[in-house]
Every structure is written in C-alpha cells, then in structure tokens.
C-alpha cells in the first residue's frame, strides 16, 4: 500500500462523529460544575437520544427499582450521573457504528458481541474486586476494540485478510493487522478516542489494553485487559484470536494484585463458568439497544 492505512483513516472526511450532544455530555462529565440538571437538560436537547437513554435505563440490565423511570432527572437520581453518562456514550457509539456493517455483517456483529462481553465481564470483575469503576469499566470494555470496527468499515477486504492471517498463523489480531494493514486496531482506536474527545481513560484503554503496563489509567486498563482475555476464552473471540493464556501470569493480573486488589479471592474456574451465561446477557444488551422504533436515530 502506498499511503498508509493509518494516514488514510486520519484523512477520511466522513469518519463517523459522535452526536454533538453526546460530546457535550462527555465534556460535562469532566467539568467541575457538572450537575444533574445540566446533564439532563443537555441530553433532552436531542430527543431521540433522550428517549433511547431512558429506554436503556429501564432495561432489565440497568433497571434498579420496581417502577419505571420516566424522566432523565429521576434516572440520574436512581443510577448516578456516571452511569447515565456511560449509557449516553454507549448508545451514541452503537448508533453511529451499528452491529450491522456495510459488508461482512457476521464479523461485525462478532466484534460488537466481543466488546459487549468484555464490558459485561469487566463489570463482574469490578464488582468482585471492589474497584468501584462506576460504570467506566463497561464503556471501557465496549470501546476497547473500536479500532477494529473502523478498520472493518473502511478496509473491509484487507481486514478480512488480516483476520484470516491471524487464524492461519495463530497469532494475535494486532500482529496480523500490522502485517496486512501496517497499523493496529489500538492505534486506530486511540486516534478515534482523541478525535471524539473521549475521556482520557478510554483513550488509554483503546491504546494499551494489550500492554496495560504502559497505561496511565492503570487500574481500569488492567481490568479491561483481563476482561478482554476472558471474553476471548469464552469464544466471544471477535474472530482471529484463539490463543491460550494463563490468567495468573498476565501482566494485568500482577498489576491488579500489586495495586492491592484481592485477585487471589477470585475463583477463576467458577468465574469462567459463570461467564458462559454472559452470552445471554450479551444478546439482551444488544436487543436493548436495537429495538424497533429506536432505529432512525437522526443527527443532522
């Protein structure tokens, strides 16, 4: 290839953009004067988005109480600002890069399934270890491989080649990507996270989930790194990576241990079996986001 894939992607004009309201909400989450009113007002500026956020907040996955939450204000009271901001981010990303790709739908769905599984697994581990990531772990898992979606969208043919290569040679996807496309999904994901002005921890996760030691946000990147592996071990392998690993030998495992998280308390075997049920959760989650009537999310 004459011009590098990375450069090409950088220069694509119609690279998907996050809805402006989503960007604003994410921006708010960083500001000192974030408040319930500010966030809910902001989301209401985009009525379809607001509707969808409410629907997700009421889904089996998130719902906390018995009664339906019918205003964002109430949703925030019930679930906390962080969770609502996370839902907004997830909803927005999934709506601009839906599980249906322009080509090769089967793999695209598999990529997203893997990402959602990673988010769900991260949520479980976060709880087990008492990490209190406040929902950041879910968004982090959801977005960690966003670079794969972009590569698949804009370089579908080459990406399928990389995928086949990784299976043939039995190497990680990122090595296959480097070989075939000269870039990696980490590099692309990181670029996108910056372009979308996503929070620093997400940028870190996209870039370093395969080398958590390099990350600034070490806890959450290590958490996602482990969750990513476990998602693969349970065949949400997003194609390609079918590698074996020893969890307790992983750098991320040692990092979490060093940071004082009680990793030794986890019954890894039992947890691995529990993850089997996550397949069901993944499907529930996807359907939460893609019910009819929720489609036709028009921005501009």
């Amino acid at each position: 290839m004459d011009i590098s894939v990375f450069d090409t992607i950088k220069n694509i004009d119609d690279l998907p953009t996050l809805p402006s309201v989503a960007m604003e909400v994410i921006g708010l989450s960083r500001s000192a004067e974030v408040s319930i009113n500010k966030v809910s007002e902001c989301i209401y500026k985009d009525p379809p988005l607001a509707t969808k956020v409410l629907r997700v907040a009421n889904s089996a996955f998130y719902r906390r109480g018995a009664t339906e939450v019918d205003t964002l204000h109430r949703a925030i009271l019930m679930m906390g600002l962080n969770e609502i901001i996370n839902i907004t981010t997830s909803v927005s990303v999934l709506s601009i890069l839906p599980p249906k790709g322009s080509e090769g739908e089967t793999l695209r769905k598999a990529f997203w399934d893997h990402c959602i599984a990673t988010g769900l697994i991260a949520r479980h581990i976060d709880k087990k270890l008492g990490m209190r990531s406040m929902g950041r772990e879910f968004v982090g898992g959801l977005l960690h491989d966003i670079g794969k979606i972009i590569l698949d969208e804009y370089f579908h043919k080459e990406y399928m080649e990389a995928h086949a290569f990784s299976i043939d040679v039995d190497c990680p996807m990122y090595e296959a990507e480097l070989e075939v496309l000269g870039t990696t999904h980490m590099e692309i994901g990181h670029f996108l996270a910056q372009k979308w002005d996503l929070p620093g921890y997400i940028a870190d996760i996209t870039l370093y989930h395969h080398q958590p030691g390099e990350a600034q946000y070490k806890d959450i990147t290590a958490l996602i790194s482990i969750s990513d592996l476990l998602a693969k071990a349970k065949e949400f392998s997003c194609g390609g990576d079918r590698l074996s690993f020893v969890l307790t030998d992983q750098p991320a495992w040692h990092m979490l241990k060093q940071m004082g998280y009680p990793v030794h308390m986890i019954d890894i075997e039992r947890f691995t079996f529990e993850i089997e049920d996550i397949g069901k959760e993944v499907n529930n989650y996807i359907s939460t986001f893609s019910e009819p009537g929720a489609e036709g999310f028009v921005h501009e």
Partner: peptide, 12 residues
C-alpha cells in the same frame, strides 16, 4: 497451572 484454552480449561 490453570490454562485458558479457547472455550475450555486445562491444568498444566
């Protein structure tokens, strides 16, 4: 040593 193979566990 607990090994995670794709879809199965093994003990090494």
């Amino acid at each position: 040593k607990l090994v995670h193979f794709p879809g199965a566990l093994g003990y090494k």
